[in-house]
Write a protein that binds this DNA or RNA. Structure first.
Length: 705
DNA sequence: TGGCTGCTCATCTAGACAGCATGTC
DNA sequence: CTAGATGAGCAGCCA
């Protein structure tokens, strides 16, 4: 284990100064090792090391030294939007050297052409993949790529994109950063990169299991053979109390939202000691004021937080999650019970991590519960130990008995995580990959496509069979044209640019060409039924009601197959949710009616916004005028959750579904009406907002003219 | 007949990327 | 192989 004092670093003074200003005196062993392997000399590297071991700084040094020596541009790619903005603020300090730092991702988007003004761009894998398909000229100037959280390659859903991006930068400078993986040698060979691997962590990690003993007693056994006895009637409760008594914070992971919530409640009712804390009272009130969440969820959470406990999952609105994360980092909130959201996302460490469940329901293998991958456990355990606060972090797994304890200990604590493998081996992913290649190249021979495909991690024989099938399928369905000289058709190019799954495009095409215009629910159902559509769970009770609820004939016929029927009904539920949304049904009512959280609603709306826009474009490129018209209006309504009559009003910034409705009911129906009745608008919206809205309305009208 | 208790059995289950128009964070 | 919380439904009991 070697620490390298900054003085010994052969690096530009300007860089040193910035590092010193940040309080960095020496580089840690991982960083030192990366430098020894050529980080500052543009060596292609694959760094595998635990969470929180300072990989971001490695990336920063790599990027900056490259820019200083060679100029050009650098792109830093992450798998999550939240990480993209986190890295953006971290990399911002380098603007002191005159470099411009920018970011772009789905929810924080920047015009393609504008990106040429930045030297360092932070983005997501999907966004970069999408950008590549359009191939703006500045992209060729980018010659340094950081691929963060590279182990996402192993994710069945997101992995194919990570792999596609990696394949494209075979001949550029590359720095791949990953959690610890078993087969790093194989992967680095594939990437043509030098491996840098260590187990060094800034805060040592103690892993263990908690086992029930006699009655009201638990034993915790750690990997260093230490063990402690704890009293209590519930393993999680007992351990949480133990940690709190020693002044630590706890992150508890559970495998379902409902269980996370009830565990949080159980812990809260056991936390008399923090009740009536003034700070917590304040946070509780702040939660009640959040404006993007449902009333019930705010009240539930506000009550819990009064005890210093919160739950956290994707059903919660962004606003609620932000508050919880913020006050946990400030150590006001002592315990968070979370689903796996927090395992992979932003940096949110705690002294202790409790992994409540090692099993997880799996829809594919019904009635069968699978054990979570070791990699996932390591991600959760990796959150243990706060640098600067805790001397050591601890992660414990809850088990049921002694024999399970032995097995779990061996598997999760003593074994390395699974090897990571290509996830391109399925039709949808592979065909998408080919489509992307043809799109960015503009015109390619099938040999060149094969050359790209052979560069993937996929087994060569599998590549060959998929390639043949894929090219035929894409040709048969009119995405590409030409036998040897391949180009995208107009339809194919549109699909590539919209970034929809080719099977989504085919679904649109098939049903739209075959059917006449129908009602909104039919269009929404079609969007939701595509492979890109949002999936919602449907209970047995809902299932049959939903079928009767549909207000008009749908484009898709009711399937006989049980699984397909479920997808059909799930899509119908999405259709009904969005239909309520665009009929201006109150948000609280929607959440209650369909049993979803405000975070779920938000994500369904976002996806359906994208898909209705895609439906519009697909209809247009196929020259289906009636469908295009219907999708166009529908898309505008889905964006803001409004009836058609409010479309003009919401064009004014600051006016959403609620304000637009208020104005409309008071006979202000167009931006022009706002300007004509500024006093009325001010009395309805308050004078400051009214003033601003009037100004923006004037600008919009001027823009239209 | 009405209401409560306790048991059995069926039911249910994580997460999050993308377009475009905005302004350019 | 490798789950567990929840809630509806119902039998049984008592007043």
């Amino acid at each position: 284990m070697q620490f390298l004092p900054l003085e010994q670093l052969n690096i530009d003074e300007k860089i040193l100064k910035i590092l010193k200003d940040r309080g960095i005196e020496k580089l840690n062993p991982v960083q030192t090792e990366a430098i020894n392997k050529g980080l500052l000399k543009d060596e292609r590297l694959l760094v595998t090391s635990p969470t929180g071991s300072g990989k971001t700084l490695i990336a920063e040094l790599g990027i900056i030294s490259h820019l200083l020596n060679k100029g050009g541009k650098a792109i830093y790619i992450t798998p999550l939007r939240a990480l993209t903005s986190e890295k953006f603020s971290e990399l911002k300090v380098w603007e002191k050297l005159g470099y411009k730092v920018g970011m772009t991702s789905g929810d924080y988007d920047t015009d393609d052409a504008w990106l040429k003004n930045y030297d360092i761009i932070i983005s997501t894998y999907e966004k970069i993949d999408s950008l590549w398909r359009r191939n703006p000229s500045w992209l060729k100037e980018v010659d340094y790529f950081v691929l963060d959280e590279f182990h996402y390659l192993n994710d069945p859903h997101r992995g194919p994109v990570v792999e596609s991006v990696a394949v494209r930068i075979r001949y550029k400078n590359l720095l791949a950063l990953s959690a610890t993986i078993q087969n790093y040698e194989e992967i680095s060979k594939w990437l043509n990169a030098t491996p840098v691997t260590t187990d060094w962590r800034p805060v040592p990690l103690k892993e263990g299991v908690i086992i029930p003993e006699k009655k009201s007693s638990y034993k915790v056994i750690f990997s260093n053979n230490e063990s402690i006895n704890i009293k209590g009637n519930d393993a999680i409760l007992a351990y949480v109390n133990y940690v709190l008594q020693h002044g630590g914070q706890v992150l508890v992971f559970r495998n379902s939202r409902k269980i996370a919530e009830s565990t949080a409640r159980k812990i809260a009712s056991n936390m008399g000691l923090f009740k009536m804390d003034k700070e917590l009272e304040k946070i509780s009130n702040e939660i009640k004021e959040v404006d993007d969440a449902g009333t019930t969820e705010k009240e539930d959470l506000a009550e819990l937080v009064r005890s210093g406990v919160a739950y956290h999952h994707a059903g919660l609105s962004k606003g609620l999650r932000d508050i919880i994360e913020k006050y946990f980092i400030q150590r006001k909130i002592k315990v968070i019970v979370a689903t796996p959201t927090l395992a992979a996302g932003v940096n949110l460490p705690a002294r202790s991590v409790i992994v409540g469940d090692i099993y997880r329901f799996n829809r594919q293998i019904l009635g069968f519960n699978e054990e979570i991958p070791i990699m996932e456990y390591k991600q959760m355990a990796g959150r243990a130990g706060r640098p600067g606060f805790d001397k050591e972090g601890e992660a414990i797994i809850v088990v049921r008995n002694k024999s399970e304890a032995d097995r779990v200990f061996k598997k999760y604590i003593l074994s390395p995580p699974e090897p990571i493998e290509s996830k391109l081996g399925n039709e949808a992913s592979f065909y998408t990959f080919i489509l992307g290649i043809v799109s960015s190249e503009g015109r390619v021979t099938s040999d060149e496509v094969e050359d790209y495909a052979m560069g993937t991690l996929l087994d060569k024989d599998i590549v060959k069979s998929y390639l043949k099938k894929g090219l035929n399928w894409l040709r048969d369905n009119e995405f590409i044209a030409g036998d040897d000289d391949l180009v995208l058709t107009k339809f194919g190019k549109r699909v590539a640019d919209l970034y929809i799954n080719p099977f989504t495009a085919k679904t649109f095409k098939d049903y739209l060409t075959r059917n006449e215009k129908s009602c909104n629910v039919a269009y929404l159902h079609l969007c939701a039924y595509t492979p890109d559509g949002p999936r919602v769970s449907v209970s047995r009770n809902e299932m049959y009601d939903l079928v009767d609820l549909s207000p008009c004939p749908l484009f898709i016929e009711e399937p006989d197959d049980e699984d397909e029927f479920y997808n059909y009904v799930s899509a119908l539920k999405v259709g009904m949710i969005i239909n309520d949304w665009i009929e201006e049904v109150d948000e609280d009512i929607i959440l209650g009616r369909y049993g979803i959280g405000s975070g779920d609603l938000r994500s369904i709306i976002d996806t359906m916004d994208w898909l209705t826009y895609s439906g519009f474009n697909i209809s247009r490129v196929l020259d289906l005028k009636e469908h295009a018209e219907a999708f166009y209006i529908l898309n505008l309504r889905v964006k803001d959750g409004i009836k058609e009559e409010l479309i003009d009003l919401v064009k004014v910034p600051g006016i959403g579904r609620k304000r637009a409705r208020l104005l409309f009911e008071n006979n202000i129906k167009k931006p022009e009406d706002i300007i004509m009745n500024v006093d009325k608008v001010k009395s309805l919206l308050g004078s400051r907002l009214g003033e601003k809205v009037a100004k923006d309305a004037a600008r919009i009208i001027a823009g239209n003219a």
